[in-house]
Simulated scan of single mutants.
Amino acid sequence: MARKPGQTPQAMRNRAAKTATAMSSPSAVAQAAPKKRTSISQFAKEVRVEARRITWTSRRETWITSVMVAIMVVLASLFFFLTDASISWAITQVLKLASGG
């Protein structure tokens, strides 16, 4: 049975060594490879490239999401209002009972 490429013991040892190096402390890696300073123009180019990769939601998706958020806000406010009112009523009844009235 033939071995697949990269399945030799030497290849496995090389991968293990690379993994061990990558998993070593970040400070050791940072000291080994100093960061290059980039110019402002290079930074702007990289920002443009990254901005092109952004996938924006459509108007319809934004509208649906906004409506769902509004519905959830209304439901949550109703829940908390009813919970607050019922706890307030219960405490009032306990205090009336305690005061004898």
Rank of each mutant, 00 (worst) to 15 (best):
Q7E: 15
T8D: 15
T8R: 15
P9M: 03
P9Q: 02
Q10A: 15
A11Q: 11
A11W: 00
A11Y: 06
A11D: 11
A11P: 01
M12E: 02
R13C: 01
N14A: 13
N14D: 12
N14C: 14
R15V: 09
A16R: 00
K18Q: 06
K18Y: 01
T19C: 00
T19F: 03
T21N: 08
T21K: 12
T21M: 08
A22D: 00
A22W: 07
A22P: 00
M23S: 14
M23V: 10
M23T: 05
S24K: 09
S24L: 04
S24R: 11
S25E: 10
P26M: 06
S27G: 07
S27A: 13
A28N: 03
V29P: 01
Q31F: 01
A32G: 02
P34W: 05
P34M: 09
K36H: 08
R37N: 11
R37F: 10
R37E: 12
R37D: 10
T38S: 04
S39K: 05
I40L: 15
I40P: 03
I40F: 14
Q42R: 13
F43E: 13
A44T: 15
A44C: 14
A44Y: 07
A44W: 04
E46W: 06
E46M: 12
E46A: 13
V47C: 05
V47P: 02
V47R: 14
V47N: 00
R48W: 02
V49T: 00
E50G: 12
E50L: 14
A51K: 04
A51Y: 01
R52Y: 08
R53C: 00
R53P: 02
R53F: 00
R53K: 15
I54S: 00
T55H: 10
T55D: 06
W56V: 01
W56F: 04
T57I: 05
T57S: 09
T57W: 02
S58L: 02
R59F: 06
R59K: 12
R59I: 02
R60H: 15
E61H: 06
T62W: 09
W63I: 08
W63N: 05
W63A: 11
I64V: 10
T65R: 05
T65V: 03
S66T: 00
V67C: 11
V67T: 08
M68I: 05
A70R: 15
A70M: 15
I71L: 11
I71Q: 07
M72W: 14
M72H: 15
M72L: 13
V73H: 04
V73N: 08
V74K: 09
V74I: 09
A76L: 15
S77N: 08
S77L: 14
F79R: 01
F80K: 11
F81L: 10
F81N: 12
F81G: 09
L82S: 05
L82G: 08
T83H: 04
T83K: 07
T83W: 01
D84H: 09
A85L: 11
S88T: 06
W89I: 07
A90Y: 03
I91N: 11
Q93K: 07
V94D: 06
L95W: 05
K96V: 04
L97C: 12
A98Q: 11
S99L: 09
G100T: 07
G100P: 04
G100N: 01
G100C: 04
G100K: 10
